[in-house]
Measured scan of single mutants.
Amino acid sequence: TETYKYDDKREAEKAAEEFRRRGITVTVEERNGTWVLESK
């Protein structure tokens, strides 16, 4: 599991889209005002 942090929800979702395009499952969730993207 890799974790990436973003200040902006849009950025996180854009990154998530890129991962999914490569066939990687990711989750995006907000933690304490930071958007956390996790690849499984």
Rank of each mutant, 00 (worst) to 15 (best):
E30I: 07
Y6C: 03
A12C: 07
R20G: 05
V26A: 05
E18D: 09
N32C: 10
R21K: 11
G33M: 03
K5P: 04
R21E: 04
V26P: 01
E17L: 09
V28L: 13
F19E: 01
W35I: 02
V36D: 02
G33P: 01
R22E: 04
Y6R: 01
Y4I: 09
T25N: 13
D8L: 07
A16H: 02
Y4F: 11
E30T: 04
R22V: 06
E38M: 14
E2V: 15
R22Q: 09
R20M: 07
V26L: 05
E18G: 08
I24P: 00
K5F: 15
K5S: 13
D7S: 14
E11A: 12
E29A: 10
L37K: 00
D8N: 14
V36M: 05
F19P: 00
T1C: 15
V36I: 13
R31Y: 10
V28M: 09
W35R: 01
A15F: 04
G33H: 03
W35F: 07
R31M: 08
W35S: 01
K40I: 13
S39V: 15
R31G: 03
V28S: 01
T25Y: 15
E11G: 05
V28Q: 01
D7N: 14
T3I: 13
I24M: 12
R20C: 08
T27Q: 08
T3D: 06
E2A: 13
E38V: 15
L37M: 04
K40A: 12
T34C: 14
R31S: 06
D8Y: 05
A16R: 04
Y4D: 04
E29K: 11
I24T: 04
K14E: 11
E2Y: 11
E18S: 08
F19V: 02
V36A: 03
E29R: 11
A15T: 04
F19T: 01
D8I: 05
R21V: 06
A16N: 01
A15I: 05
E30D: 07
K9G: 03
A12Y: 02
E18W: 14
I24L: 12
E29Q: 11
E17K: 07
G23Y: 02
D8E: 06
T34Q: 15
R10E: 14
E2R: 13
V36T: 06
R21D: 04
D7Y: 14
K40T: 13
L37R: 00
N32I: 02
K9I: 09
T25K: 11
V36H: 07
R31L: 08
G23V: 00
E17Q: 09
D7P: 10
E2I: 15
Y6H: 02
L37Q: 01
E29Y: 15
V26W: 02
F19I: 04
E11P: 02
D7V: 12
T27P: 00
R10A: 14
E17Y: 07
E17F: 07
F19W: 09
T34G: 13
K14G: 04
R31W: 08
S39D: 07
G23H: 03
E17M: 09
A16G: 02
K5R: 13
S39Y: 15
E2F: 15
E29D: 05
T34A: 13
G23D: 02
E2S: 12
G23M: 02
G33I: 00
E29P: 00
V28E: 01
W35A: 01
E38S: 12
E29N: 08
